[in-house]
């Protein structure tokens, strides 16, 4: 009988970890350096030197500004993203489980998915006003589709042998959902959530550009309208950094939640 292989993937040596970090940071650093060098003597109002942008940015984005503009944006995004996740998974499980429901809803879903969410902003403003509710609704209306459609696919793809095993051992109802359907669909659900997150960031900004009194998108538009160009650029950079940070957090959560899935795939590749 073969021995069980190691329980965990081998821990990366510090040197390889360092190398990977350098590889990941290499290009951004080069790009920033090029930007810095090329824009250094720029007198163009619209393309200020990177140095000016960064210096202005440090003055603009004070702790107070972060509480009034960044925190509300992030909160709307998180609330909208979470709501879309819950809604998408719940509907996806129902649609994926019952073929008849799927047959009825599929054409409608394809249509709704094809509508670009930003067009809905003026419409949503009509009934949700211009407050936080509107922004959250906009984010939900865009984020829900990738989650929903991926969940449907994931639920439909539950392995037939696993499903029969569960049935034979009397695992039904909520236990089946919790121990079979959701874990089995979780790789697809996470793929949907990842798409939803980037859509969510876009919609967060757009909804704030339409009608808002605070938020990152609002701030960027305000700076642009008042010809505060370095400030505007600093806001755009901050948005980019926020996106990277959210993606990193998402990846860490996914790694943890899908550890079994990545391990399974590794073991299939090597065997």
């Amino acid at each position: 009988m073969k021995r069980a292989p190691a329980r965990r993937p081998p821990v990366l040596l510090p040197r390889t970890a360092l190398r990977r970090l350098l590889l990941a940071l290499g290009l951004p650093v080069v790009l920033a350096a090029v930007w810095w060098a090329v824009s250094a003597g720029s007198t163009d109002v619209y393309w200020p030197p990177l140095r000016t942008i960064l210096e202005t940015g440090r003055e603009v984005w004070t702790a107070e500004r972060i509480t009034t503009d960044v925190v509300p944006s992030v909160l709307r995004l998180l609330i909208g993203f979470t709501a879309a996740g819950v809604l998408g998974v719940a509907l996806g499980v129902v649609i994926g489980t019952f073929p008849r429901v799927r047959a009825v809803t599929e054409p409608v879903l394809e249509f709704l998915r094809a509508v670009p969410p930003p067009v809905l902003v003026p419409v949503i403003m009509l009934f949700a006003g211009i407050g936080d509710t509107m922004k959250v609704v906009v984010i939900v209306s865009g984020c829900v589709w990738p989650v929903l459609l991926n969940t449907v696919e994931g639920v439909r793809a539950v392995d037939s042998v696993l499903a029969e095993t569960a049935r034979a051992y009397g695992v039904g109802g909520l236990a089946r959902l919790r121990h079979l359907v959701l874990p089995s669909a979780s790789p697809q659900i996470f793929a949907g959530l990842r798409q939803a997150l980037s859509i969510g960031v876009i919609l967060m900004v757009i909804s704030e550009m339409f009608a808002a009194s605070n938020g990152l998108g609002f701030a960027v538009v305000q700076f642009q309208r008042s010809f505060a160009i370095p400030e505007m650029w600093s806001g755009i950079l901050l948005l980019g950094l926020l996106g990277v940070l959210l993606a990193l957090v998402f990846r860490a959560v996914e790694r943890r939640a899908l550890a079994w899935y990545h391990g399974l795939r590794r073991s299939r590749r090597t065997s």
Binding site: D159, L162, T165, H179, P183, S186, W260, Y261, L264
Partner: peptide, 8 residues
């Protein structure tokens, strides 16, 4: 390989 739950 398909009758054990890989996430458990």
């Amino acid at each position: 390989g398909r009758s054990l739950f890989p996430w458990m």
